[in-house]
């Protein structure tokens, strides 16, 4: 079987696309989740603080903290994980401050994104890149 120059080029382009797609898929999954959470509304860059380490030695337990005064809910996403959702914090009437901290798993170096829903219906977004030395999703 012989390949023409045109066919070879097409195959190469296809292979390149295949390697790029999985990454894209994960990123768009988080975009979809954000859109679902905000209903497509615009997000402000201020009002939400996301604290995460710059370098995490162990991806199994990465301490993070979110704080957004006046928020009713904060959603956290790990864009590079096989399943991006990390958790959603809903604050009740007795929450003294709209802040919480927890420990999360990160599969590798990636952006952690938090989106806060404010009491007035607006949204804020914050993200932070965390370098992970050892991934935390087993396998």
């Amino acid at each position: 079987m012989e390949f023409t120059r045109r066919e070879t080029l097409a195959m190469g382009a296809g292979a390149a696309l295949m390697t790029v797609l999985p990454l894209r898929a994960s990123a768009s999954a988080s975009d979809d989740l954000i859109a679902e959470f905000t209903g497509g509304a615009d997000m402000a860059d201020t009002g939400l603080e996301l604290t995460a380490p710059e370098i995490a030695e162990n991806g199994n337990t990465v301490p993070i903290a979110v704080s957004a005064p006046g928020a009713t809910a904060i959603m956290v996403l790990a864009t590079g994980n096989p399943t991006p959702p990390v958790g959603t914090f809903n604050f009740g009437p007795l929450a003294a401050s709209q802040s919480a901290s927890t420990r999360i798993r990160l599969a590798g170096t990636q952006d952690v994104v938090a989106v806060a829903k404010m009491a007035d219906g607006s949204f804020a977004r914050a993200s932070k890149t965390v370098k992970v030395t050892i991934g935390g999703c087993g396998g």
């Binding site: 958790g87 914090f89 809903n90 007795l94 401050s97 999360i104 798993r105």
Partner: peptide, 22 residues
């Protein structure tokens, strides 16, 4: 009265730890 209601996903670490203010 509710203080906090957290939805946890598989990306939360073993022995889930949550800290918050009430």
């Amino acid at each position: 009265q509710n203080v906090i209601d957290v939805t946890l996903e598989p990306a939360i670490s073993t022995n889930p730890y949550v800290e918050f203010e009430a």
